[in-house]
Each structure stands twice: as C-alpha cells, then as structure tokens.
Design a protein around this nucleic acid. Structure first.
Length: 756
DNA sequence: ATAGGGTTAG
C-alpha cells in the first residue's frame, strides 16, 4: 500500500515538473490529459489545476470548466486559474460564473482573486454585483489590500458612479497612484476638467507621482469625452515635464490632434514618434495617417502609406477613411482593393469606412452593393455599418435593402442603438413609409434629439404638418430642448402646408424663447412659406433684412415661388442673384425660362436659353428610380437604351389617350424646350422620367401593388396631373419623392393638395 | 493566480 502511494507521488511530481503552464501547447495538454486519466491522477488537485489552466489559456473554456468541476477538492488556485484566464480574454460573465461556483463550494476568496472578480463586474458594468463584492471586501477585511481598492475605484468609474469611486478613494489609508489615476481618468472621460485637475493637485500634495498609466489615462479619457484640447494640454504638460511618453501617449495625442485639425502640433508629434522610435507601432501608425487625413493632407499620405513595411489593417483603414472623407472615393476603393490583393485581412472597419465613404459622396448604389459584397466576403456588419447602409438606402429609397438591414439589426440585437434607430426612422420616412418610421420611433426606449428630429423631418417631408408639430411639442414635454435642426424641420412642415401664422410664430420663438439664432435654412423655409402663399413681396423683404448674405437655397425658394405665382419681376431679381452664386446650375435658368414661357414671353425664353448656350451649360437630365424586386432601376428621360423603353412608351401613350378621353388636358407650359408645335411638346411631356418609372413599375409588378418613385428634380405640374389620373385609372397608390417632399397619390388625388 | 492606458468606420 505504501509503495503504491509512493509511486503515485513520484508520478505526480514528474507531471508537475514537466508541464509548464505558460508554454505548453494545446496538443501537449491533451496528451498529458489522457495520460493523467490513464494513471488515475485526474482527481489530484494540483495536476488537474495545471491542466485546466493550460486549457483556459488556449481559450478552451468548456474543457477547463469541466475539469474544474471534476476536481473533488478544488482549492483557491484551481478557481483562480480559470477566473484569471476568462478575464484575460474578456469572458467576464464566465469569470463571474466560476467565482460564484467558488463561493458555492465554500472556498473563501483572498485578496488576489478579488481584483479579478471586481474587474469582471466592471467589464460587464454590473454595478449591483460589484457592490456585493465590495461589501464582501469590507466584511472580510480584504479591503485593506491596495489592489482590491484600486480595482474597486476602477469598477465604480466604469459603472459611471464617480461619487462612489471618490468615496472608496477617500477611505483609503494610503491612496496609491493606480487608484488616483483611475478616478482622474474617470473625470476626464466625463469631460470634468475641474475635478480631474483637483485630483491631480491632491496627488501632488500627498507626494504621489503620476506614472505613465496616469498620464495616458488622462489623455485618452479627455479624448473619450471629446475634450481634445484638454487631451493635448495633458500631453504637453507631460512632455515639457520631461516625462518620457510611449506609443500609447503618442497614438492618443495624435488622435486628439486629428480631431482638432491642428496640423502644426501634429507634425511636432510626428517628430516625437520618429525620435522616440515608435514608427512601427501599429496604433501610432494608424493614428498618424488619420491625423494627416483629418488635417487635409489626404492625397499626401498615400506615398507615406506605401513606405510602411508592415501594413496593418488599422493603417489601411485610416487611409481608406481619410480618402473617403476627402471625397476621393475612387482612390479609397483602389486602396481597398490593393490591400485585399496584398493579402491584408480587411475587417468590419475597412468595409464600413468604404461604405460610409460611398454614401457620403453620393455613391449610394455602390454603398448598397458593397454591403452585399461584404457579407459574401464573410464579414459581419455591425452597429456602425448598419446606419451607414440605412442612410444610403434612404437617399435612393431602396426600401427592400433597408428592411433587410432592419431585420438584421433586430436579430443582432442593436436595433435599439440610437444611431441605428434614427437612421431607421430616416430610411423609412425617405422610402415613403412614414408609419413604419413612426413605429421605429415609438419602439426606441431612450430616444435622443436625433431621433426626435428625424421623426419631425419625416412628417415634414410627407406634408403631415399636424403630426410634425405634435412631435415637436411632445419632444419638449419629454424634456428635450429643440435645436436648430428641430426648427428647420418644423418650419419646413409649415411651409409645405402654407401655414403662415404658425410658421411666423415658430420663427420668432426660436430666438426669443430658445436662444437659437436663425440660420440660412430657417430663412429658406420662411422665404418658401411666404412665397408659396403668394406673399412674394414680404418674402423678398425678409431676404433683404437678413443679417447675412442669402445663399442659393434662399434665392431658389423665392424663384420657385415666382414660378408658381408667375411673378416675372421678382423672378428676375432672384434669378440674377442665383446666376452670380451658381452660374453652372441649369435649374435656375430653366425656372426663369419657365416663368417667361408660362406668360408666353417667348422672346425672353430664347434669351435665357441663349445665355445657357453661351455659357455652355445643359439642362440637368431628369432621372428617376424605382425599386422593383429588390433591385433599384434608374430611368432617364429620352433614354432609348433601356431594354423595356418601347413597351414603356406604348403604355405611356395609351395612358395619355385615356387621360384625354377622361377630359384631362396636358399642361404644356411645363415643357422646357421651346418647341412651337403643340403635338411635339406633348410628346416630350410623355418622356419625363418619373412617368417612365411609374409605368415601368406598373409593367413589372402585380396589379394593385403600390409604387414608390424617386426623382432628382422637382416634379413638374403636368406629371403631377398625369400621376393623379394614373393613380385612379390603374387603381394604384403611387408615392413620388422629389427633391422637396413626398407626393402620395391615391384615387386621383395627391396628399400635397396641389400646393407644392 | 491580482488592478490601471492605445489606433482606424457612423
């Protein structure tokens, strides 16, 4: 019997000495494991603990956990090995599960395991659990350990309970650097400059020298609260105090400089990077590229990028984002492809940057295509990708893609994210689905101002002024102060419906009650509101009284109203101002010539057209889109290359015959070409792109399906009349979004009540 | 077996 025990002890010793926890590979561990079972040593606490910790360090948590459960008498080290490994790989809830199991097995925690348990609470932002562990620390006397104390300070900071963190710090007999700097960086993260500085001074008074972690924590904390100049300030103090910074300090400082667009300081920090030898630190490299990009040197950084030896994804991403931001989408796409070819594994950030770049530069279709490619490439979109895609869907009214993105975010559990939510509201509103937008709005548990504004502007776009104003008031009673965007939306709603008195009241209340100075867009809304209701003189005097020079939107609003009310005198004034501001915008010339044409002043029409010719500008081609069977189809006026064009035109002609028989007369004053022949003019009317898109929709969808069409210009009066007819003749609900608003055609009527 | 700092996308 004694011999058996002795030989077992020998085997045990042999095992313990030959397996090194930190260097053992997974296959070595598995081999050893089988051996241990064969030798009947698996119930030995030390051996099993060693094995489980190797498993855990290879992230084989289930194997490790089942090993732990099979140890008859696990000690604190058995639990600690697994808890620490879980926490190392951010598996905080697993770490806590093991911790709770440990307590259940009546193994008493010590001061070495408590910080990890507290860290897990912090990682999960589990304040209640953290408090319980804190209470345990107090009753057990383990609170006297400085590691336990500083991890508690950190936990409270992470859970946004700075007052608790402060209390813990105040009760410490000997506050240390770690605890002080954790709280200081907590204040920095809140943008609380005052308290952060007070704490630093306190530290100095008590003779506690800040270390590298303290400095870096402050810089990164200020970055997180958007206090970039404070961050740079800390960096400068650190630097001038002779404190040697590292890659962390440099990458944080560069990020701050990028957001401040301070090229001079950026170049200085670049100098530090070279001098201190951090040129190959991947974090430093990407924030360096990002900094130059944000400081307006996007094109200069391509050669810099090419010289980098080890191109990391982060560096690629910074370059792609910088190029996109600078409007160089083609270059961004090129860089993206080159990185792919070089075998760099591009990630969500890379794809999202490119999608965002396309979306921000008007390449919305490309953005939607990229989103699909991304999924084919096996990259999961996240809570940043989705709002980018949704914004692209909104501008091209790609409802099917937008809905798919909505489903995706529901499945992934980030449909409540505020960016996602406001983008959803915007997408549905822009795709003509105002009720769906409202549902997303109602579902959001913690709406922010952006959500409220998206909802108001959605209603405004649909001409639903009552709802827009209701939401505007509801927003205030829910404790949100309207900002300039809210006022733009509510004023534009008033303008859609011609509510002069309400509009005027909002306009004056904006500065009087909310201290918001009217901006250009507010004036544009007022000019359009007054103009639309025929108060052209009042509209013009508002422009003359503006405290700053009116832009093209303001003059454009006046010019449009002059067309509606056929005022040649003011129309000329507005047009002349516009010719100065944007000489190449064909729309302005066309509006003016329309005003003349409507009054039969053909001489003047010719003059305007000659002017266009002499400057060499052409009419901006009308273009409409419609989504049919998950695909966005574009239709151009007079585009003979479209495969279904013959069929479409036949149907258009058939419809106009029906229309004539029903007693509708084509409104030829909307024809832009100065064709004298009436029949010819009618023929041109047939070709307006919105009509083509609607007929395309009728031909390619089942009877009764509602159609949603988008147009890049304002809808013309003749199309408006025709579409009203088509909606009743074909028994279809038709939604048309032009540059101004939505028109909802149903049973021969339009939601704008012919006021637009 | 212990706590504390980093870049790039909306």
């Amino acid at each position: 019997m004694e011999r058996v025990i002795r030989s077992n002890n020998l085997k045990k010793a042999a095992f313990l000495s030959c397996l090194n926890t930190s260097t053992a590979t997974l296959s070595e561990a598995k081999q050893a494991h089988t051996h241990v079972i064969k030798e009947g040593l698996s119930s030995q606490t030390r051996i099993a603990t060693k094995l489980l910790s190797i498993y855990a360090n290879h992230q084989c948590f289930t194997d490790a956990y089942s090993l732990l459960c099979r140890i008859p008498e696990p000690d604190i080290l058995s639990f600690a090995s697994l808890i620490n490994a879980c926490s190392k790989f951010d598996r905080f809830s697993d770490a806590l599960k093991v911790f709770v199991r440990m307590l259940g097995r009546s193994v008493f925690p010590d001061a070495r395991i408590l910080p990890t348990a507290i860290k897990a609470c912090a990682g999960l932002s589990a304040l209640e659990l953290g408090r319980q562990v804190h209470a345990f620390g107090v009753t057990s006397g383990l609170m006297l350990d400085s590691f336990v104390e500083s991890s508690l300070v950190h936990m409270y900071v992470k859970c946004d309970e700075l007052n608790y963190a402060r209390k813990v710090l105040a009760r410490m007999s000997e506050p240390d650097v770690a605890s002080c700097s954790a709280l200081a960086s907590g204040y920095a993260k809140k943008g609380d400059v005052g308290n952060a500085n007070v704490l630093i001074r306190e530290m100095e008074k008590q003779g506690i020298q800040p270390n590298l972690i303290s400095w870096n924590g402050m810089i990164s904390g200020f970055n997180q609260s958007g206090a970039f100049s404070e961050a740079i300030g800390v960096f400068k103090v650190m630097h001038s105090g002779g404190f040697k910074c590292d890659g962390v300090s440099l990458s944080c400082a560069l990020a701050a400089v990028g957001d401040l667009e301070d090229l001079i300081v950026g170049v200085q920090i670049h100098g530090c990077v070279i001098k201190l030898g951090f040129r190959s630190d991947k974090y430093v490299v990407s924030s360096l590229l990002d900094m130059y990009g944000k400081c307006g040197c996007a094109s200069d950084i391509i050669p810099v990028f090419e010289e980098i030896d080890h191109k990391d994804v982060g560096a690629c991403n910074a370059l792609i984002a910088s190029l996109s931001r600078a409007g160089m989408v083609a270059e961004a796409v090129k860089t993206f492809k080159q990185c792919q070819e070089q075998g760099i594994e591009l990630d969500v950030v890379s794809w999202t940057s490119l999608i965002a770049g396309c979306m921000q530069n008007g390449n919305d279709i490309e953005a939607v295509d990229l989103f699909r490619e991304m999924q084919v490439a096996g990259i999961e979109p996240n809570y940043v990708t989705i709002p980018c895609l949704l914004t692209a869907c909104a501008s091209i009214a790609a409802l099917a893609h937008g809905k798919a993105a909505h489903c995706f975010s529901l499945k992934r559990g980030f449909s409540d994210d505020l960016y996602v939510c406001s983008a959803l509201i915007d997408m549905y509103a822009n795709c003509g689905r105002i009720q769906a937008a409202r549902r997303c709005f109602d579902w959001e548990p913690s709406r922010n101002l952006v959500c409220w504004n998206a909802m108001i502007s959605g209603y405004a776009m649909h001409g639903r002024v009552k709802e827009a104003i209701d939401i505007f008031h509801l927003m205030q009673s829910s404790g949100h102060k309207p900002d300039f965007v809210s006022f733009t939306s509510v004023l534009s709603a008033c303008s859609q419906r011609g509510l002069v008195e309400e509009g005027k009241r909002f306009f004056s209340s904006m500065s009087a009650d909310f201290g918001i100075k009217p901006r250009m867009e507010h004036y544009a809304c007022m000019v359009s509101l007054l103009g639309r209701t025929g108060k052209l003189e009042e509209s013009y005097s508002l422009i003359k009284d503006m405290p700053f020079a009116p832009d093209a939107c303001v003059w454009g609003a006046l010019l449009s109203s002059c067309r509606v009310h056929q005022n040649t005198r003011l129309g000329k004034v507005a047009a002349n101002a516009l010719f100065e501001l944007e000489p190449n915008n064909s729309g302005n010339y066309i509006l003016l010539s329309n005003i003349y044409a409507a009054k039969g002043k053909w001489n003047e029409v010719h003059k305007v057209r000659d002017m266009m010719k002499s400057i060499g500008i052409r009419k901006n081609p009308g273009c409409s889109w419609i989504e049919v069977k998950n695909k966005v189809h574009t239709l151009l006026a007079g585009d003979s290359s479209h495969p279904q064009m013959k069929q479409i035109l036949e149907k258009v002609n058939k419809l106009s015959m029906e229309m004539k028989m029903a007693g509708y007369l084509p409104d030829t004053k909307f024809v832009l070409q100065d064709v004298e022949e009436l029949e010819e003019r009618e023929h041109i009317l047939c070709g307006h792109s919105e009509k083509l898109a609607i007929v395309f929709g009728i031909l390619n969808t089942n009877p009764g399906t509602s159609l949603t069409v988008m147009k890049n210009l304002r809808i013309c009066g003749d199309c408006h009349t025709s579409i009203k007819f088509i909606s009743s003749f074909e028994e279809r609900e038709i939604l048309v979004r032009d540059t101004n608003r939505f028109h909802h055609f149903k049973d021969g009527m339009c939601s704008c009540e012919d006021l637009w």
